[in-house]
Design a protein around this nucleic acid. Sequence first.
DNA 1: CGCGTCACGCTAATTAATGT
DNA 2: ACATTAATTAGCGTGACGCG
Length: 265
Amino acid sequence: MTERPRYDADDGMTARTRRQVRMTEPVERDPYRGRSPRKIPAYSSFEASRYLRIPENTVRNWAFGYAQRTGPGRTMRSRPLLKAADTQRHLLSFVNLVELHMISALRRDHNVQMPKIRRAIDYLEAKLRSPHPLIDEEMETDGTDIFINKYGSLINASRDGQLAMKALLQAHLKRIERDERGVAVRLFPFTRKRDADTIVEAPKLIAIDPAVAFGRPVIVGSRVPTSEIAQRFQAGESPSEVAQDFGRTEEEVWEAIRCEFPTAA
DNA sequence: CGCGTCACGCTAATTAATGT
DNA sequence: ACATTAATTAGCGTGACGCG
C-alpha cells in the first residue's frame, strides 16, 4: 500500500538476475560509474543477514537505523551505525557487509553496548579520517590499540577483558583480506555458530569477493556459489555427490550448505 | 492461478542498562 | 527498589514476483 522504493516491476528478470544486474548495471547505466564494486549497493538486508549470521531485523536496525515507540505518541529514531550504500532502496555494499561483520564482533560476540560502539566509531572516524574506520587498514595495525586504549576501560574494566577484546577484534579482522593498498577486497564470513574458543581457528572455506560471482559467497578458490551447492542439496543430492561434481571436498560442501541455511545443523 | 519466497514496515516480547 | 529507556529479535501482514 505504501509506496516504497522497489525495483522496476516489468524488467522481466528473476530475482537472481536482478541481483546480478545490481552489480553490473552501474557500468552501463550511470549512477555508480567509476565506483569500485566494493561500494556498489548489491546486497539486501536479507542476504547480509544470511551471510553474516545476524538476524535480518538487526541488520536493518544497524544499517538504516530504527524507530521505536517510547510512549504514547512519542517515538525515537536511532542513527545508523554505518553509511549504507543505498539508504533509499535499503541496499548494502560489500564494504557495508564487512562493517557489519566487525560491528557484530563488538556487539554480539563481545557484548559491547550500542552507545559505546557509536562513540568508538565516531572517534575512530575522526582519528583515522576514514568513512569506514572499522575496516580501515589502520584498524588492523594501530586501530585496535587506539580503540582499546581509548575505549577499553569504558567498555571493559578488567585488563583481561581488554586483552580478550583485542584478540576478538583481531580474529575478526583476520577474516578480511586486503589488497596491496590495504583495501578490503574479500571477506571470509563465519559459517558456523561461534564462541570465544572456536573463533580464532574457524576455517576459511567460504569467501565473499565482489569480483567473483557478483559478490555471492563462493567456495574459496573456486567460482562455485554456495547457493548453487545448496540448491543441489535441497534437490536431494548427497553432499558427497555434489562435492564430486564440483571437484571440492565434502567439508567445503557442508560449509556452503551451512552458509545458505543458517538454521541447519 | 496457487504456492513459495522475499522485501519491508510494523508490533510486541524480552532483556539489559540507566535513572531516580 | 522501581520505572523508564535502549536494543535486539520474533513474528505478522501485505504486496510483488517467479515458477510450475
